[in-house]
Design a binder for these strands. Structure first.
Lengths: 71, 71
DNA sequence: GTGTGACTTCTAGTCCGTT
DNA sequence: CAACGGACTAGAAGTCACA
């Protein structure tokens, strides 16, 4: 489970999260997802669903598109 | 399971599919997914994962972003 | 050609902890 | 604070028969 698109998404999340000075824990709280799950997404270990992509994007105050830009 | 973003995605798939004169059957073949599954996505009955979004986008010769444009 | 319900298998996603 | 592990539950993936 390390498909390029998942890596792209995970890296975008990590980059934006750090740029906003948030910990995985804080982001997981804002997104209503579990702490460990955010880590798995950033490491491209899980094939995320559309609704959770949206939750994370919202928590980061960006559109989903921002998280897939480079791809 | 009828969240707006899923509806947006499903409608975009249906619109693009029809614009290219494809049946659900033909698209499912190109995307390597089951016929009925494509229908469920178009009807927003499934919370699709990122990898399957990519498969469908590829089969339609567009980027994933095109399928989330309006959103 | 498409929609629907029912179904099984597999993985997304949670929760506990330890490094 | 983040990575990683095992065990678990919810829900997506994937298929089918029939309308």
């Amino acid at each position: 489970m390390k498909q390029p698109i998942l890596i792209q998404f995970g890296e975008a999340v990590r980059t934006l999260r750090k740029a906003q000075g948030l910990s995985q824990e804080q982001l997981s709280f804002k997104a209503n997802l579990h702490r460990t799950y955010i880590g798995m997404i950033e490491r491209a270990e899980k094939n995320i669903t559309l609704i959770n992509m949206e939750k994370i994007a919202n928590a980061l105050n960006v559109g989903i598109i921002e998280l897939l830009k480079k791809y």
